[in-house]
């Protein structure tokens, strides 16, 4: 460990961690800003997705007033919010960690005075700040000006807090998934499978309130719900509804916080079990 690194328990530890986090985030931002046109693909893909959703749901609502507790206007806003939230919470910590383990490059992290998970989280901060600037904001402007959708959240503060927590749940779930790289030669298949589950059960394809009641009860206790559906429905309606249970934004955030803590603990336990399996030669 470098001589300048504050030791555990030092009063300088938190500010130092913050410095490290900001430095890693800034470096990641600069690294990915060189490829900002890749992120800007969302400016084309996002509006096309919303356009299709607009026509699908306009056709479907022809004979009904509400679906899953949402009227047509709310449903369109739901999909707009879902896209936008995806841009700031998107994560590929699983792919990154699996790549580091597979190539042996993870070895360099075992020598650094920093937990790899903290490093990866800091990277995500930098990466998603770029997402905020080149994906979220341009798409939000397009949704408002071109599609004429009222994208104003019902409660801005609660919505922002919910998105931040979804950011963390996404990260911890994906990081835990990435740890499979220590156990399997190629964990791409499992990652793809969980990706499918996430798409289905985080409310990206369709609001979870359209699922059968029994499925909604189960989803209430799965982390997927808090990765996308919770902030999206809070943005859309100002409250959280699932499985016939409606709770205000603050209570929903408490549930999200529990999901963050739960996934943090799971990732830590799994990290400790996984790290013992790592072997590298020089990297």
């Amino acid at each position: 460990m470098g001589g300048t690194s504050p030791q555990r328990g030092s009063p300088q530890r938190l500010p130092h961690s913050l410095d490290v986090c900001l430095a890693v985030a800034e470096a990641t931002y600069k690294e990915w800003a060189a490829y900002r046109s890749h992120s800007m693909v969302s400016i084309l893909v996002g509006p096309i997705f919303l356009l299709v959703q607009y026509f699908i749901w306009t056709a479907v609502y022809g004979g009904v007033e509400t679906l899953g507790g949402l009227n047509l206007e709310q449903m369109i806003r739901y999909f707009g919010a879902s896209s936008l939230i995806g841009y700031v919470t998107m994560d590929f910590a699983d792919w990154n960690l699996q790549m580091l383990v597979r190539t042996g490059k993870f070895l360099t992290f075992t020598l650094r005075p920093i937990h790899h998970r903290f490093f990866a989280l800091s990277q995500k901060f930098g990466h998603r700040v770029l997402g905020l600037l080149v994906e979220f904001i341009p798409c939000l402007i397009i949704f408002i000006l071109l599609f004429r959708i009222d994208m104003m959240p019902e409660n801005i503060l609660i919505t922002v807090m919910s998105i931040i927590l979804a950011f963390f749940v996404n990260f911890y779930v994906n990081y835990t998934l990435g740890l499979l790289g220590f156990w399997l030669v190629d964990a791409g298949g499992i990652s793809r499978f969980v990706g499918i589950l996430t798409n289905i059960f985080s409310g990206t394809l369709v609001p979870l309130t359209l699922f059968p009641d029994w499925a909604q009860y189960i989803l209430l206790f799965l982390p997927f719900t808090y990765m996308g559906y919770a902030p999206t429905i809070i943005w859309t309606t100002g409250h959280f509804t699932l499985g016939g249970i409606t709770m205000n934004g603050y209570l929903a955030i408490a549930f999200q916080l529990i999901a963050v803590c739960f996934m943090y603990v799971i990732s830590e336990i799994f990290y400790r079990l996984s790290i013992r399996r790592f072997s590298g030669v020089g990297a």
């Binding site: 609502y61 009904v64 679906l67 899953g68």
Partner: peptide, 24 residues
């Protein structure tokens, strides 16, 4: 997973029709 995804892809339609709505 590709097999599951191919079967799950029409999920939106299944849920729409399950809710009593439909494509005209």
């Amino acid at each position: 997973f590709d097999l599951v995804w191919a079967v799950a892809a029409p999920l939106v339609t299944i849920l729409i029709y399950g809710s009593g709505a439909s494509f005209p």
